[in-house]
Amino acid sequence: MLHIVNKSPTERNALASCLAHAKAGHALLLIEDAVYVATAGGKAALAAAPAGLAVYVLSPDLQARGLGGKAAEGIKEVDYKGFVELVAAQPRVQSWL
């Protein structure tokens, strides 16, 4: 399962709810206003992530918000092409709206 979160955890509970339901082997992609989570300052919000959850961030959204190149360690940056690859690699997709 590819989980997609698009809101900052200080605005919505989408990330918290996603992490509570994600499992090992799943992937999480942070897009739009969720990319703040992918930085050193925001990463604490991922503390509840299950072991074995791969975390990605959409780099165009980081760049747009002045965070280009600031993805925290352990979080992989992908562009839209990488987003598509994640969708193809995981058997299904869940957007946490």
Binding site: M1, A20, H21, A22, K23, H26, R92, V93, Q94, S95, W96, L97
Partner: peptide, 15 residues
């Protein structure tokens, strides 16, 4: 259990 159920689906739609 909800998490396991979600992981078994073919199509998950949330609005």
């Amino acid at each position: 259990d909800m998490a396991s159920l979600m992981a078994e689906q073919d199509v998950v739609l949330s609005f």
